[in-house]
Nucleic acid binder design. Structure first.
Length: 198
DNA sequence: CCCGTGATTTAT
DNA sequence: TAAATCACGGGG
């Protein structure tokens, strides 16, 4: 027998286009477990990087290197890169093998392990800044290049848990151009950033 | 506004 | 080999 549209799947499915995955990730729960310390939060801001033709993407013009190799893997891999000499950013790979599309996680609202996040981020950081920003959330969740290529579908250290069975309705999502991609010409204007309304 | 910081990419 | 760039964050 076939699963209907309303069938409840336990896990997020990743083998879809980047925009679909971006919208699907909003409201779901990012989790990391490090040395038995579990932290978690709700994904509230993401950006889609939609393919080799997307001049804002690390895979633009089909570029492939040790850094972005994970983008060429199956949907569900984690792509973590290092930038500006001090920050890590985390993406969820979408699509299928050899189709380098991904979703950058830009903002999470902490729900579990706030004390752990505070320790990692520093004592002067305000609660609402713990994981609001792509570099901030990797620090709060302790994600770095060691985590690049992990498979979120099976990994026990980093995962995305289904916190809601249906995607957020479109009216609960704000759509804007992506941040920090002014170098990308017309692609800088594309509305590929998605933010869950407060 | 400016700057740190260093891996990666691109130009010479 | 050298120079420029960078999916950022913190501090004025």
């Amino acid at each position: 027998m076939r699963m209907g549209r309303s069938a409840v799947t336990r896990f997020v499915e990743f083998d879809v286009d980047a925009v679909t995955l971006a919208r699907r990730l909003l409201g779901q729960r990012l989790v990391s477990v490090r040395d038995g310390e579990r932290v978690a939060g709700t994904i509230v801001e993401v950006e889609a990087y939609v393919g080799v033709h997307d001049l804002a993407s690390h895979a633009k013009r089909g570029h492939r290197s040790p850094r972005n190799e994970s983008m060429y893997g199956p949907g569900g891999l984690l792509y973590v890169y290092f930038t500006y000499g001090m920050h890590h950013c985390a993406n969820v790979v979408a699509g299928c093998v050899d189709d380098p599309v991904a979703v950058l996680i830009r903002g999470v609202v902490p729900t579990e392990g706030l004390d752990v996040m505070q320790r990692r981020r520093g004592p002067r950081v305000r609660e609402r800044d713990l994981a609001s920003g792509p570099g901030r959330l990797t620090q709060a969740f302790a994600l770095d290049r060691e985590d690049d290529g992990r498979d979120l579908r099976v990994d026990r250290g980093v995962m995305i848990e289904r916190a809601r069975s249906r995607a957020l309705p479109a009216r609960r999502i704000d759509c804007t151009p992506r941040i920090g991609v002014d170098y990308a010409g017309v692609w800088a204007e594309e509305p590929l950033r998605f933010v869950a309304r407060a």
